[in-house]
Amino acid sequence: MNFLETVFCGVTLKNPVVAASGAYGFGRDYTDFYALEALGGISCKGTTFAPRLGNPPPRIAETAAGILNSVGLQNPGAAHFIEYDLPWLRAQNTVIIANAAGSSVEDYVENVALLAAADVDMIELNISCPNVKEGGVAFGTSCASVEKIVSAVKKVCPKPLMVKLSPNVTNIVPIAQAAEAAGADALSLINTLTGMKIDVAHRRPILHNNTGGLSGAAVLPIAVRMVWEVRRATQLPIMGMGGVTQWQNAAELILAGANAIQMGTAIFADPYAPLKVIYGLAEWVEREGCNNISELSGQVRPW
């Protein structure tokens, strides 16, 4: 019985556990630990059309049950990714999601056109990066700009287009609906929450960027709540993420309405965390007497 196989906007994932963008690079760094084919998929490091240097260090700070990062989309550019990483990644027998960022509508369009023409299975449109000055989250926090950018990108994207939403909004539902109306094929949520940590002794923020994006266990309840709200407002497939450390956390996101999940921060403490979640989810599905995990998606019983 294949408890975990998941068809996500037409793409078959062998299980619904995907490495989150930015935590896993382009996959190469983890192959000493296990073969990538164990994963449902990998969402690659966010790439821009032109290479980006990213923000000055320090780029990482630890908080209570979480971390703040301010990498700022350091990447070698989409063309480099396509030439050097993609052929290798394709041979790893896992689903490849290209995570696309940009600094203007034209820039996003050019980038997605290039990525979607390459051998990737899906595009994740990152309009929610809190660590870059132009673009990023600025596009993801108003309905008008979400609609504008998603509809423009959709025209050049023959592959399934998954729009990654920011939690840094008062109400995520109209944003999700704007993405759907503009032609998104799926949604992923949540990206990181903007935060700040100050070194009291030096009166300095730890991050050189002063602020950064919060992720890890601390954000799970927010992710669960947002997936639940978005599930009730749209029919689109949802990839849920934010703070998944063990299978129970993934199960919460799935019960709230996610069809698949991603894991990032947990991998830093335990590179094997995704494999443990996959195993735990399979046991859960069997214990619940289901044939496939999709039967549990959205099955929370709210009061």
Binding site: A23, R28, D32, G54, P57, R59, N69, Q74, T265
Partner: peptide
């Protein structure tokens, strides 16, 4: 030295110029 997350090269947090 720089502050790190993954330690294996994936996350680009530990960079120096």
């Amino acid at each position: 030295e720089e502050r790190m997350a993954c330690g294996v090269g994936a996350c680009l947090t530990c960079v120096v110029k």
